[in-house]
Design a protein around this nucleic acid. Structure first.
Lengths: 342, 342
DNA sequence: CTGTTAGCGCATTCAT
DNA sequence: ATGAATGCGCTAACAG
């Protein structure tokens, strides 16, 4: 068993309170004793046991991250990864660490069980929580409840609770703007790839697009995720571009742009001469890697992650809680993949 | 403050030991009392506080993951992500959770400070540790020390300690095999992209390749990571393919294959007619997304992550520790990007 | 089968 | 400025 503050105290010839005080700078201590204590700590390679500390202070200095994303795990798309990066950055800078909360595939089916992040909160395993992509109604209710009780939670996504903190980038809005960019360049028939994550927003996006661009024809294709098969892309291209005459493709994931581009090459559809492409990029410059370089809307996912963590830390440390919400701005980056129609 | 087992015990009219017993199935309990206890737990929405439990058992049921990768964070390349996926899978299935340990950029510079994962171990924040890509000498020493003390650690990578557990895929070997595949297809001048992560292995790889393939010319380019700029690829291609006559490109990251392919298109180098491409893929089928489809060596990173976690869990739960090492086999997947020279 | 009790390691209040 | 004492929530050994 590792050394405890008792050992340290004994060796330094002081009481445990003194040791504890030094550990926490919680009071002035005679310099001589302090020195002795430091020596003893060094001697034992002492590190305070977190259970003891936690039990006394009821704090774990850990933050949970819960992204109940799609089928597999949370390590799928660039968006999530950039979020994680941002979160990790500020969390570790602030002395917290990050616990990945993976849902036990089927918590719904286990009797009487609750979502795992709630367990973590109740168990005090985490002092705060960052969420993204929660769509389950039941889970949302639970989250509201926690927010009501002023438990530190920040949601990455649209605001959905009065008192809750959140960061977001107005997905619906920028998706519509993407269509507008293409519209203004003269495109009237657009193949519109959306991730299965965004299914819920699709109708609203289409509706809003229709309102401002009456004569625009959108051909939506859902489920265009990381592993959307090339055969499907090929088929889509034949159907919508070759046959139905789409002149532009709009996609919400840079990951799919690759497949699209390759399939274009395969079908000898030249980009942007015959088809224009517009994508979303979550990592700045991602679109530059392609040939031709893909024009994109940049969503600053990493910044959003940072922002989320900052808000959270601020709440946890009970500093001013005035800021509860941050909106991040999307930026259109014009490169080579869009052609203006004459 | 949330309810404790005292509250539950009182409401159920039993002692705390009985409650604890039910919590841990540590002994038989009269069914009536058990029922009463369950009712009380339900009533209070009771969840055992981890600090208390941890203090008594000295276990956190958390596992640390430490990938002190390159400049940014650990969420960069497909290899790491697949590893994480695999780890997450079995860990959550076994009831553990995963703590990402990010190094404080400059722990080296902070006085007297130690690597963060060691802190976590000492603090008992984690019951075990999974490592990958540690190259710092000092850190390695610390790790050996922990292994000597039989602390559960598994290293992803080559074996480097007698008693330590590890999983690996023989990077050097399969890199040489990749060169051999190209060699056997008649290629004698190969542009060889390696990630900065593999710098340390490069010499050895080149040496081994020279031994078996005397008349092979390898042109190594280091630092070909995720964000290796397209301008560089372009320059490389001009230099090594156009000017120096390389007929094949071998890369250790599928992420860079994209850039290569695009640059080929840009330079009107047809693949595989004029240049062949061989890459490593860490996610099965990744090479299929391209056009032409990239032939690849498949390194089962996700399996490796699972394996690592399995070994770790087995050790932590003190079951048979006979297996200390797992080698994973790499598989060559022939697709369309390699041409046999006549 | 069940209750009592002694820690587990630390922070903190209360005396001094 | 410092030590003694108490409590945080739970487990496990012990006694019945």
């Amino acid at each position: 068993m590792a050394a405890s503050i008792y050992d340290v105290a004994k060796r330094a010839g002081v009481s445990i309170s003194t040791v504890s005080r030094i550990l926490n700078n919680s009071a002035n201590v005679n310099e001589k004793k302090a020195e002795a204590v430091r020596e003893a700590m060094e001697y034992y390679q002492f590190v305070p046991n977190q259970f003891g500390r936690g039990l006394a202070k009821q704090q774990s200095e850990m933050v949970g991250v819960y992204f109940p994303y799609q089928p597999d795990s949370m390590f799928e798309n660039a968006y999530t990864l950039e979020l994680l990066k941002g979160i990790e950055k500020v969390l570790s800078a602030c002395g917290y660490s990050m616990v990945l909360i993976g849902e036990n595939l089927d918590y719904k089916s286990r009797k009487a069980s609750e979502p795992k992040f709630l367990e973590f909160i109740r168990q005090k395993k985490i002092d705060g929580l960052i969420l993204s992509g929660v769509s389950d109604e039941d889970q949302l209710k639970r989250i509201w409840q926690c927010m009501d009780e002023d438990y530190p939670i920040v949601y990455v996504g649209r605001k959905f609770h009065e008192r809750g903190m959140n960061v977001y980038a107005q997905l619906e809005t920028y998706m519509v703007e993407m269509l507008q960019v293409l519209y203004e360049k003269g495109h009237r028939r657009i193949l519109f790839y959306t991730s299965s994550l965004h299914r819920i927003y699709l109708d609203s996006i289409l509706k809003r697009a229709k309102e401002t661009m009456g004569d625009l024809n959108i051909f939506p294709v859902e489920g265009a995720d990381q592993d959307y098969p090339r055969e499907m892309v090929l088929a889509d291209l034949k159907e919508y571009v070759v046959k139905k005459g789409c002149t532009a493709i709009c996609t919400s994931l840079m990951g799919t742009a690759q497949g699209i581009l390759n399939s274009c090459t395969e079908l000898k559809l030249s980009v942007p001469d015959q088809v224009s492409i517009l994508a979303v990029e979550h990592r700045l410059g991602a679109g530059r890697l392609f040939y031709p370089q893909i024009s994109a809307f940049y969503v600053p996912a990493q910044d959003m992650g940072q922002g989320a963590a900052e808000l959270l830390v601020r709440h946890m440390e009970k500093r001013e809680l005035k800021e509860t919400s941050r909106e991040y701005i999307t930026k259109f980056i014009e490169r080579e993949s869009i052609r203006a129609m004459v």
